[in-house]
Design a protein around this nucleic acid. Sequence first.
DNA 1: CTAAGAAGTTGACGGGGCGTCACTGATCTG
DNA 2: CAGATCAGTGACGCCCCGTCAACTTCTTAG
Lengths: 223, 223
Amino acid sequence: MDQTETAPPPPRPAPKPAGKREQTKQQNRQIILDAARIVFAEHGYGATTVRDIIRATPLASGTFYNYFQSKEEVYQAMQDETALVIRPKLREAREKAGTVEEFISATFQTFFEFVLRDGVDVRAMRHNADTMRMRMDTPEVVAGFDELREDIEKAIARGLFPPVDADYLMAAIVGVAFEMSERMARRSEADAKAAADFATALFLGGIRSLPHTGNGKAADSGA
Amino acid sequence: MDQTETAPPPPRPAPKPAGKREQTKQQNRQIILDAARIVFAEHGYGATTVRDIIRATPLASGTFYNYFQSKEEVYQAMQDETALVIRPKLREAREKAGTVEEFISATFQTFFEFVLRDGVDVRAMRHNADTMRMRMDTPEVVAGFDELREDIEKAIARGLFPPVDADYLMAAIVGVAFEMSERMARRSEADAKAAADFATALFLGGIRSLPHTGNGKAADSGA
DNA sequence: CTAAGAAGTTGACGGGGCGTCACTGATCTG
DNA sequence: CAGATCAGTGACGCCCCGTCAACTTCTTAG
């Protein structure tokens, strides 16, 4: 690998009270996370060693363990970083919803668009397909699930939804979102809007209200 | 899959000689698989080493590699074993379906009942929750997904379903089935029928047709 | 039945990644 | 500015991995 300084997507945590020491610590943590993103995307989670990550940074091996306890912990930190980006988007999208239709539509639209545009690029996604589901129970990810369930419960309390099992409904939304994302990533012409329309129609009116394709096959199943 | 009759040459080793040697091989393979199931359930996938599995058998370390190439391969074999049990059940259930309702209902009913009764016990399921989704692309599991998509396409061809995107619909069913299974496993009083009714109603009529609970909370979120 | 060969098992071994820790140098504090 | 604190460093010991030559068990031809 010849990556020297290819800065990846994740955002910068800006405000620091800053001693020079604290500043360096934050930087190093981010350096490790950025390197990990590249290496995981390149070789996949299983094939990556902690040493691979370290070699992709200017740091020494021991330094890694000042920041993370293991490869798994870096991966979880990456997931948390991602969750922290999409959660506010989802929250905001759902807040504006005044109807079931808007609630569901906004959720899927936001999610699929994020996966396709702001998320990791498709090549990385596919390489990570084998790992992206493991340990979904990191704090920030779980918090995202909880927020969804809370929002459903609130919507029920407001009379927006019928009084259904919010936990199962949350699970169904999450399951469809993730599983469809994986299918979407395998299509050469992925279309967030079409995917969101499909999922939204399914949740609002069931199978009979799904958009028709004319032949029942996927428009494109990609390479 | 569909064998076009363009491949006659490979000689048929069809009749099983079933010598003592072959018998022992089958036994050893099963011994390893059974040990792996226990060890994975006990410590989780990530924390178990190949040596742990071997230590749980009367075999030597080298023997393991006569049967599997790695820890991952044992895990995949376990998944395949499971897939081989449930796939015929699902196929049979769907074959009898004459309507969309029956198709969907039979699928979820069969799946949730299997997970709860014939599947691994809940304790093991919860311990494996972090790993059960990884590498879902083993041959038998993928074959199960393909069968579902094929059955959907057939149903569309028969006019049973509207002509929708079969790939996305398959993904949606799979996503809901697995994600709801995980939630179900976390409830102390899991009810396959209730879960199946929920999922079936969702797919047939959307959110508004879901069974009401009276408060919108889960009946029980377990320990 | 027996002996040659095939098939499978064994466990020690070289290779390598893991996590640690004593040491060093940089930053902070009084 | 000196002493205290803290992060960085990289060699080290540990353990796991996958292999392989020697050994044991089974099969089969005569």
